[in-house]
Write a protein that binds this DNA or RNA. Structure first.
Lengths: 258, 258
DNA sequence: GCAAACTCGCGCAAGAACGCGCATAGAACT
DNA sequence: AGTTCTATGCGCGTTCTTGCGCGAGTTTGC
């Protein structure tokens, strides 16, 4: 076996098991422990893993590890809810459609359920979503340009608007994530130059679908993104206050509780 | 059997099995190991594969983890050279400058040396570079929009051109990576819709810096990106053929060998 | 807080792979 | 027929990888 192959296997093992000991790797690959140590050193130099005493841990998602920690911390107890919302939202994307995907963890929860789509065109402002989708062979992925927002890793600002205008894109559906949804104030969000991007995407879409976990329903954020009249469908989970769901439904928005 | 037939079989084997040893290839093709080594050298020159100690791995790999493997495996023995090129190139970026960074592993090697810059604006078509740079607080990162190329994870095509035009950006310096640099044919690359993006970035830059490891110097790829007259500086390593370096220097390009 | 067990880094030696020069064989050209 | 050129195989010195042993450093458990 080539040394590069052995290193690739080490990475593969680490990726699937997150961590491994030097001894275990040496046994599984039938080489001396010192060889494994040398391999781990080299791979660490290339930022592929992080060396620890007695083994190594995976660096996969190195760039988004901070974000991922954030995700994990913020959403541990809601993980199942988000996955269900993502699955339901993904069902609304049909083969050969063009859709817009906003940035955000709830939108990202759709990605695992898009692997079998054919001929779908996805436009997104999220670098993370774009990188994930680029793996799928039957999906055309288009990233919106613009200034990169370091927290959300998405394209924002005036340049993003200009890029979207220059692309002259139209979507069958736009999937939007927000911080708050209420019957009275509609969609609200933190003050951010990501808001105009959401607005433009909604304007260019035939159908607007908002995804929001239960904690967002009835919540109010400082800046209004759009009134509910601009929304066709809201997908949320069973932790959403039923009263608010009914009130939103009364404005003509289809509310799906999963 | 003709030598070209044998090389074609080597490529076929590599493509289906990703990697192979010199010994294995010699046995399967019934020739001496030295012959296989010569074949692998030639095929590497043509960027068809990447030589490793004891064998070779395939360059053209499927999507999935192909890119990652390519990065990790292909650059093991060149790691130091690339890092040196990256360091030297990064030195050319000064505080409060606006620069364009192309996609590619050699360009990515610049990133570790940009952590202490102040007020730099970086425009890039590479999702990976954009994600890395977004971590840096004192750097403004702008991603070019467009269709995402799955192998390189970069924005390409007509949409990328439109985005760059809409942004109306100008750069102090553009850092470009290519597959081949020769005194006669200038910059050459694989046929790809990434080429117009490189060309536009070069046109918008006051100074064009090409980064290319030694294997690219004197190498020829099928499609011309630009003549050398469009280039101000070439940064390469000591493995570059000195004769070609001199010939490139004679055309007025500053050649830095690190 | 200390000892035992474990892990690490380093140097060394054996074996594998490499590059290079040279000789041979066949093809192409004169 | 002779010459030149290219491709191939072989031998040899060099370089690289790997495994092992040992002293030093680190973790664990009492």
């Amino acid at each position: 076996m080539l040394s590069v192959q052995r290193r690739a296997r080490i990475l593969a093992i680490l990726e699937s098991e997150t961590a491994a000991t030097v001894r275990d790797l040496a046994q599984r690959l039938s080489v001396a422990e010192s060889t494994i140590r040398r391999d781990l050193d080299k791979l660490e130099q290339q930022n592929c893993l992080t060396r620890t005493y007695g083994g190594a841990i995976c660096d996969r998602n190195g760039h988004d590890s901070g974000q991922r920690n954030y995700d994990v911390l913020a959403n541990t107890h809601r993980h199942n809810e988000k996955a269900r919302i993502g699955e339901r939202a993904a069902q609304m994307i049909h083969d050969y459609e063009a859709v817009f995907l906003d940035s955000g963890t709830t939108i990202e929860a759709m990605l695992p359920y898009l692997t079998d789509r054919e001929g779908v065109t996805v436009v997104t402002c999220s670098l993370r979503i774009a990188m994930e989708l680029a793996k799928l062979p039957h999906v055309t992925t288009i990233i919106v340009g613009g200034q990169v927002h370091s927290q959300t890793l998405s394209a924002t600002g005036l340049l993003a608007l200009r890029a979207m205008e220059a692309f002259q894109l139209h979507f069958a559906k736009a999937f939007i994530g927000v911080r708050g949804v209420t019957a009275g104030q509609g969609l609200t969000n933190r003050v951010s130059d990501r808001i105009p991007v959401k607005q433009l995407a909604m304007a260019q879409a035939r159908e607007v679908i908002v995804v929001a976990d239960g904690s967002k329903v009835g919540a109010l954020a400082p800046s209004q993104v759009a009134p509910l009249s601009a929304v066709d469908c809201l997908i949320t989970d069973t932790t959403a206050p039923p009263g608010e769901c009914d009130a939103i439904r009364a404005t003509g928005v289809e509310v799906l509780v999963v």
